[in-house]
């Protein structure tokens, strides 16, 4: 590879543009994807502990139900809802639909609100069923 190839001018990158909703959402889609990828390690631990036996499972639940564990799980659940909803929007785009600027803005705003509401609703439901709420 010649030196010239590395020094070619670049097209304007992130820091050039004003921050906009669809830009934040695009980045967030990948960020939540990577975060959920890391979350699969937690998922693996859960299933392996369950398969290993009661004492291994107790170690898992102690960590998962601790304050730090619950905050991490809350984060994963938000990432899941966001990635899931925005993923549906991506599939809708793949079908060639919903590209009008007003529609893009509306579906984007809806996803920002619903993903957060679904996360909070899920945790309220879980704590309610646990009887701690």
């Amino acid at each position: 590879m010649s030196m010239d190839e590395n020094n070619r001018p670049l097209s304007p990158h992130l820091q050039i543009y004003r921050w906009q909703l669809h830009m934040v959402m695009s980045i967030l889609h990948r960020a939540t994807g990577v975060a959920l990828g890391l979350g699969t390690i937690f998922l693996t631990w859960w299933l392996m502990a369950l398969a290993a036996g009661p004492s291994a499972y107790e170690t898992f639940t102690t960590v998962a139900s601790s304050m730090v564990g619950q905050i991490i799980l809350f984060g994963f659940s938000y990432g899941l809802f966001y990635h899931l909803l925005n993923g549906i929007r991506h599939l809708y785009w793949d079908a060639g639909q919903g590209f009008e600027p007003a529609t893009v803005r509306l579906t984007g705003q809806l996803i920002m609100v619903i993903s957060f509401a679904a996360t909070v609703g899920t945790w309220l439901a879980a704590y309610y069923l646990l009887g701690t709420l």
């Binding site: 369950l50 107790e58 899941l80 899931l84 599939l91 899920t122 439901a125 069923l129």
Partner: peptide
């Protein structure tokens, strides 16, 4: 992705329903 939409919703709903379940219940 299409497969994961219903599966993920089912999974989260199941975990909520199982909140606080003991070891034998999970098994």
């Amino acid at each position: 992705a299409v497969a994961l939409v219903p599966l993920a919703v089912w999974f989260v709903a199941s975990l909520v329903a199982l909140a606080g379940a003991d070891y034998p219940t999970m098994i």
